[in-house]
Design a protein around this nucleic acid. Structure first.
Length: 263
DNA sequence: CAACCTGTTCGCCA
DNA sequence: ATGGCGAACAGGTT
């Protein structure tokens, strides 16, 4: 599920544990989500550690403890939950940090998500080397133009999903950006007019800003005037012109767009 | 039972 | 070396 706004929403679920000590760590032994992370070290160093702060960037999150850093990526089905101190971990609760009176839970059925740990004071390189946020200065029109030129042969839909330039944008956000920019998702990235590239830039920023404001706050629904609320229903209609929306697989993902508005 | 899924990574090929 | 694509990952839901 999680794209930019949802990730921010989940990050805040653990805010209740800020400045509090972890009393116990429960891990699911061979969970794929840990990948190369040493679960034994994670459990040992986080037991007794205090949660000092957290940050989200794109689809990634980092939680800072006084003994190290916990990185979280939610993949397709991951979620962060706040549970009671008596929480009995379910079969998909791969990482559970117990505190006095609460439990901070990472749950992920499909295990495409990932949890990693980095011991010590200094930020891990997998965090410092992440892509610049869409809402940062570094996400310039020039940077977008260069990126589309380099990926000139790929459909623009597929390019918008590339986290190295559009961190946080996922399937529905990419469709939303292209719908607002009035660009067909099948169009090759290298064939966009300068005005279209400009639109990809500004609409990416708009959709990210609004997703954070609307979904990131309390998981409210975006307005009905957004494509997002119409894209999964069979026979959904374009909220701008009323045309029946088209669905097809582009860039390996189900894509929804308006063939009348988007050229 | 089969198809589908808001993500990433890998291997193959051009 | 670089870019583009399809498969694989795993399990719940429709």
């Amino acid at each position: 599920m999680p794209e930019l706004g949802e990730v921010e929403y989940y990050r805040k679920q653990w805010d209740a544990g800020l400045r509090k000590k972890v009393t116990r760590v429960e891990l699911h032994g061979k969970a794929r989500v840990l990948r190369e992370t040493d679960g034994e070290e994670l459990g040992r160093l986080l037991t007794g550690a205090v949660l000092k702060g957290s940050e989200a960037s794109g689809k990634q999150m980092i939680f800072r403890f006084d003994t190290g850093w916990l990185g979280v990526h939610l993949g397709m089905t991951g979620e962060l939950r706040l549970e009671s101190g008596g929480h009995e971990p379910g079969k998909h609760d791969h990482v559970v940090l117990f505190q006095k009176g609460r439990a901070l839970v990472f749950r992920d059925a499909r295990q495409f998500g990932r949890v990693r740990f980095h011991a010590g004071e200094s930020e891990p390189e997998w965090w410092t080397r992440r892509a610049p946020d869409v809402l940062s200065e570094d996400f310039s029109e020039e940077a977008v133009r260069k990126f589309l030129a380099r990926r000139k042969g790929a459909p623009i839909k597929a390019v918008l999903l590339m986290q190295e330039r559009f961190p946080g944008i996922g399937n529905w956000m990419a469709d939303e950006v292209l719908w607002r920019a009035k660009i067909a998702p099948t169009k090759k990235a290298g064939s966009l007019e300068p005005a279209e590239t400009h639109s990809v830039w500004t609409e990416s920023r708009f959709v990210c800003r609004e997703a954070l404001r609307i979904i990131g706050t309390d998981w409210s629904d975006p307005p009905d005037a957004w494509l997002m609320n119409h894209r999964w229903r069979d026979g959904g209609h374009c909220p701008r012109c009323g045309m029946e929306l088209k669905r097809a697989e582009i860039g390996g993902r189900t894509t929804c767009w308006c063939t009348r508005c988007q050229k």
